[in-house]
Amino acid sequence: MEEDVLTTLKILIIGESGVGKSSLLLRFTEDSFNPDQSLTIGVDFKTKKLSIDGNTVRLAIWDTAGQERFRTLTPSYYRDAQGAILVYDVTSQATFSKLETWLSELDTYSTKSNIVKMVVGNKIDKAGREISREEGMKFARRHATLFIESSAKTKDGVQCAFEELVQKIIQTPGLWESTNGGKTFQVSDGPAEPSSCGGWQCTI
């Protein structure tokens, strides 16, 4: 099965403490939810294979701690990431306001200039929403990122978030290289329709 993997992609999850970064990751990788998810110290990581349009990629997803104090430590692991998920809590204005800081941190430390960014508004199952969907969307548009709302608890939007991010990465020319020398892959120039196969093709 190994040779079926097109490439390995490195994806970061960043955002304020307690917005549900680790829960998102747990939901995506193990499809489970732990209301008492323990606090991440520094960084943690998980892997998962994902198939998109008939192509399998291996994802190495780096989960980071959101505490201010860890910020001297975590950016070291931003290196060579192809995608980044910026998470905020839709029930907390403070976590949303901090997104700007996270974005600039990402720009400072990411080594790939065309890294694909996605803003995720998490915890939409919770009562007491402070950030509307429109606000989140506006922010994403202004910073030219992908956007989705999700709930790690109810599964809403989690799978979709990762899939869209990976699809976008694969469609970005020069962002990744095939690990498989025998095959050649062509990446089309034009943006492909979302969630449709055909953004790129494989010729053996």
Binding site: T40, D44, T47
Partner: peptide, 17 residues
């Protein structure tokens, strides 16, 4: 990437904590 790994990573990372 299993739970045990996560535990060990947390140990390593906890030096600064």
């Amino acid at each position: 990437s299993d739970a045990e790994g996560s535990q060990l990573r947390a140990k390593i990372m906890s030096a600064s904590l």
